[in-house]
């Protein structure tokens, strides 16, 4: 029980919270045909984190958030410059910018030596949920003990903060988000500016990417931004139902994915454990596969 509280619970929480925050905003990326934005965000944030760390010398939350946001903003501006001023086709603009930013991040990691001390490029790519531990836990009572709770892994607080902000904005702007997701032209006629709501969606996606990247790695955030919303979309036409279903699938992926990766092999006495971030992402993809094969709404006409 104590080892579950110290090792498995924090890791499971980190994986699940990241899954929830990414899936929540992912619904609107999927509906507005910006699914690859999650992929792009997962890549461009890397140099921001590395530069911020090198400049400030700390991995404090606000440093990471500032660096990552600056990188996301800079990339978004560069993509817009490529598209509007240089007139490069949209997917080529996105593709050339996010690969260059990621390459810059990898190069900085290796050249500054940060790769050996602070961030492992493998952890950034694959995630390393398993490092989230809670040594202060001594029993169930620790769950209610403020001093023990204060020593929970810092990425948990970051993820909870991100989830709270994204959830709040989604709730407040739900009507506007619904309209621009399904009918941007109608949005304009009823006085909802699609560009501004679109910018809000991109900003929230950046926030979700930032709080998730160093905690769970790029691949889990990319999977979570697209797979649970896509799964939910196979099952319902109603946006509210879709959002709740996507959160349910994210939750199930997080909890069962971690269990399959770590707890099941252990229970059967195997020495091996699978990478939890990868397993969670694969599970979310399998949910999507099943939904695509058997979902009630899988083949309805595509959005126009």
């Amino acid at each position: 029980m104590i080892s579950f509280l110290q090792i498995d619970l924090p890791a499971m929480l980190v994986g699940t919270l990241a899954a929830l925050v990414c899936a929540l905003i992912g619904n609107f990326l999927v509906l507005t045909r910006q699914s690859m934005l999650g992929d792009a965000m997962g890549h461009v944030v890397l140099p921001g984190i590395v530069i911020a760390f090198v400049l400030a010398g700390t991995t404090a939350t606000w440093v990471m958030l500032t660096g990552a946001f600056a990188a996301a903003l800079f990339s978004a501006m560069l993509v817009e410059f490529f598209r509007r001023v240089a007139r490069i086709e949209a997917s080529a603009a996105l593709g050339s910018v996010f690969t260059a930013m990621f390459a810059l991040g990898v190069l900085l990691l290796e050249r500054t030596g940060v790769a050996r001390t602070t961030f492992d490029v493998h952890h950034i790519l694959f995630g390393n949920i398993e490092t989230a531990i809670w040594p202060a836990a001594t029993g169930v009572a620790s769950l209610f003990d403020p001093t023990a709770l204060a020593s929970l892994p810092p990425q948990l607080g970051r993820l909870a903060f991100g989830l709270a902000v994204v959830a709040l904005v989604v709730v407040l702007l739900f009507k506007e988000l619904r309209v621009i997701s399904f009918d941007p032209d109608f949005a304009r006629t009823v006085g909802i500016p699609p560009q501004i709501i679109g910018a809000v969606v991109v900003t929230l996606a950046a926030l979700a990417a930032v709080v998730s990247l160093s905690a769970v790695g790029a691949i889990l955030l990319v999977a979570m931004m697209v797979c649970p919303p896509a799964t939910a979309r196979m099952l319902t036409d109603d946006l509210k139902t879709q959002v709740w279903l996507s959160l349910l699938f994210a939750l199930a992926s997080g909890v069962f994915g971690y269990a399959i990766a770590v707890l099941v092999p252990l229970a059967f006495g195997y020495e091996i454990s699978l990478g939890a971030a990868g397993t969670i992402a694969v599970l979310s993809g399998l949910f999507q596969l099943v939904a695509m094969l058997f979902g009630l709404k899988r083949g309805l006409p595509k959005l126009t």
Partner: peptide
């Protein structure tokens, strides 16, 4: 074959295969 758009198809296949 599904109503998911191509960008969603690309992103989900990328994520699932890479994760595997």
């Amino acid at each position: 074959r599904t109503r998911l758009t191509e960008d969603t198809a690309i992103a989900s296949v990328l994520a699932t295969f890479f994760a595997f």
